[in-house]
């Protein structure tokens, strides 16, 4: 028996919006610790990992580990039927071929019930080791979204150059070129507006904007986004250090005392010169 109740159902809506255009079919792995999902996009260029802790739910019961394979577009269609302030309850029986979604209106006078068919997916799980990255950039998520959107007018790839004084996002194409430079901000009263750079060495790498624009769909989940990267590593070193991680924390919307209840991490390999 599996049951998870989330008063802030809008969090699930935002998570689906952040992954449904990247991944078609995926499995939610449910354990007593929470729900997680790992999937590659259809062209296998990027990897997305979602995690929601059990203590982020208002009620969470998972008697034994379950894998819920589903079409995320179908799930998204159903989740869209919930109002933003609805409580969402996910229920699954043992060995069932479907899950039930309940949307409870705030005044508890209305309950909508939907079922979604499950799929048996032959998921390929990739091991994601804990890696220390040489460069970590924390910045407002809406600024990152804007930069990716603007630069995709210019070219297909963004070149991220990071030095101690700041970070530069640049793109070039047939019509010309463009760049945005962000300086590290001083400690401010509004941490959500800050730009923080932590680096061991300078870095310059290029990434496909098509994917970064997909990742930026997670912007409504978090005021800040973290980009973690490492410079090109010498031959023989594990290649995974070259992968960029774009991370959005998932927080509950408690204005007084917000807490992190999970994350979305997107992994993208750099574009390299042939």
């Amino acid at each position: 028996m599996f049951e998870a109740r989330l008063i802030q159902g809008s969090i699930l809506k935002k998570i689906l919006d952040a992954i449904k255009d990247l991944v078609t079919d995926a499995s939610w792995d449910c354990s007593p610790n929470g729900m997680s999902l790992q999937a590659m996009d259809t062209s296998h260029v990027s990897l997305v990992s979602v995690s929601l802790n059990s203590d982020g739910f208002d009620k969470y019961r998972c008697d034994r580990n379950l894998t819920l394979g589903m079409n995320l577009i179908s799930l998204s269609k159903i989740i869209k039927c919930a109002a933003n302030d609805d409580t969402i309850i996910i229920k699954a029986g043992d060995g069932g071929d479907k899950i039930t979604l309940l949307f409870e209106a705030q005044n508890e006078s209305e309950v909508a019930e939907y079922e979604i068919k499950l799929m048996n997916l032959d998921s390929e799980y990739l091991g994601i080791p804990d890696t220390t990255y040489n460069v970590t950039i924390k910045m407002p998520s809406n600024k990152f979204q804007r930069i990716c959107r603007d630069l995709s007018q210019i070219g297909d790839a963004v070149t991220i150059s990071c030095a101690k004084d700041g970070v530069r996002f640049g793109a070039a194409g047939d019509l010309g070129s463009g760049s945005i430079r962000l300086a590290q901000t001083a400690t401010s009263d509004k941490p959500e507006d800050s730009v923080t750079i932590s680096m061991q060495e300078a870095l310059c790498q290029s990434f496909a904007l098509k994917y970064l624009n997909h990742f930026a769909k997670a912007t409504p989940l978090s005021a800040q986004v973290t980009l973690s990267m490492s410079p090109d590593v010498p031959l023989g070193e594990p290649l995974l250090f070259n992968v960029c991680v774009v991370e959005y924390n998932i927080s509950d919307n408690d204005d007084e005392n917000p807490s992190t209840i999970g994350f979305i991490r997107y992994y993208l390999a750099p574009k390299i010169d042939d």
């Binding site: 590659m40 799980y125 290649l239 995974l240 992968v243 992994y267």
Partner: peptide, 14 residues
């Protein structure tokens, strides 16, 4: 010309 490898080249299957 720039190219992009599959993410599977970077992470090992579990």
């Amino acid at each position: 010309k720039m190219s992009q490898k599959s993410i599977t080249s970077y992470f090992k299957p579990n």
